[in-house]
């Protein structure tokens, strides 16, 4: 548009696909009771891990995002 300069790339936003991959792709092989991890059946453990990794994915997206960096105080 009226931006004369090339816009900095926001390629790191691909990390936002992390949660759908964790929950919707990886869950297929994770749909099992064995092995038990930390006292939890495997599927419950996996979904808990995915829940904890989701913010990490968003953080990775933000970390490389020029828009995020520009507004960071």
């Amino acid at each position: 548009m009226r931006d004369p300069e090339p816009r900095p790339s926001r390629r790191s936003l691909w990390w936002l696909l992390g949660p759908p991959v964790l929950f919707c792709v990886a869950v297929v092989p994770a749909n099992r009771v064995e092995p038990w991890v930390l006292g939890m059946p495997f599927l419950v453990f996996w979904l808990l891990l995915a829940t904890l990794l989701s913010p990490v994915c968003v953080w990775l997206a933000a970390r490389g995002d020029p828009v995020w960096k520009a507004h960071r105080r």
Partner: peptide, 23 residues
């Protein structure tokens, strides 16, 4: 059973998407 955790799954996915859609 544990399919109830779909709530967690969609909220995690939705919140990641909100990084772009919200702004």
């Amino acid at each position: 059973g544990v399919s109830a955790l779909y709530v967690v799954a969609y909220l995690s996915i939705g919140m990641a998407a909100s990084y772009v859609v919200g702004p």
